[in-house]
């Protein structure tokens, strides 16, 4: 695999500096199409792929930054991204991958690997599921299942939590956007997964309110609450509430910090 990948003129291709045809003509050993079928892009090999292996070919996701100005001349510093309004992010606008892998906050509380989100794709259609037989768990047209994003960016269900008055913005105002007002005592071990740094999250939440509210309550990505696996807290009692029936009680096996 490495040999195949190493012959790819990865960064120049992805940045569009040269076209595929130009790259192939400039390097007789280039096997771009063959490398797309490399086992590392499929189960089970992708589960054990290291970041270094992925970045051998896909380094451009780290190198590439936002444009210095848009085609119409808009400067990134003249626009305010939502993530820049949170107390968890400092600095200029940056690309999606860099913010999840290279930003100070990412390094502080996350331990994301390429295969945390990416579970391969189907090279035949450059998308998932060209075979209805193969239960690949991939999502059509997407390289990442969007429900994975919700593991971090999912709203909690205000109704289930019973927080008045059922609207997150109003609830936030009521509690001064400080989730730990109640959740200092009611704590689960939900953050104990292999793509997060649980203790760092606990520490960061003490000083920055958006560590909790920014993603789980505030302006979340999607308009629906995410049905997190139920992690009962120590004082929750043995009875399972109606809303938690049939829900898993721990995170998906591949995300468990210490696999069973």
């Amino acid at each position: 695999m490495m040999k195949l990948c190493q012959v790819i003129v990865h960064a120049t291709l992805a940045l569009g500096v040269i076209t595929l045809a130009q790259a192939e003509s400039s390097n007789a050993n280039l096997q771009y199409n063959a490398s797309r079928w490399d086992p590392i892009h499929f189960k089970p090999a992708i589960d054990s792929a290291s970041n270094e292996q992925c970045l051998t070919c896909h380094q451009e996701i780290i190198d590439r930054k936002v444009l210095e100005r848009s085609p119409a001349g808009l400067l990134p510093e003249d626009a305010l991204a939502w993530y820049q309004t949170l107390d968890t992010y400092e600095g200029e606008q940056d690309t999606f991958h860099r913010r999840h892998l290279m930003s100070d906050y990412a390094k502080e509380v996350m331990d994301l690997r390429c295969n945390t989100c990416h579970q391969g794709n189907d090279p035949r259609e450059e998308t998932a599921n060209s075979s209805a037989n193969g239960d690949t768990a991939l999502t059509q047209r997407k390289h990442v299942d969007p429900t994975l994003c919700l593991m971090c960016h999912g709203q909690y269900d205000a109704q289930i939590m019973g927080v008045p008055p059922g609207d997150w913005r109003e609830t936030g105002n009521l509690f001064n956007f400080d989730c730990l007002t109640c959740h200092a005592a009611i704590r689960t071990h939900r953050h104990q997964v292999n793509f997060l740094k649980p203790q760092a999250i606990e520490d960061a939440a003490q000083s920055r309110k958006d560590v909790c509210f920014g993603c789980h309550g505030g302006r979340a990505w999607y308009d629906i609450p995410f049905p997190y696996p139920r992690h009962a807290w120590p004082s929750a009692g043995p009875e399972i509430p109606d809303w938690a029936k049939n829900r898993p009680t721990e995170s998906t096996a591949r995300f468990l910090a210490t696999p069973n």
Partner: peptide
């Protein structure tokens, strides 16, 4: 999308559940 205002951060690409 007014692509002339795009700075290429690719955030929309990530948030869209349907790969549009």
């Amino acid at each position: 999308i007014d692509s002339t205002l795009c700075i290429g951060c690719r955030r929309c690409e990530a948030t869209c559940p349907y790969g549009a």
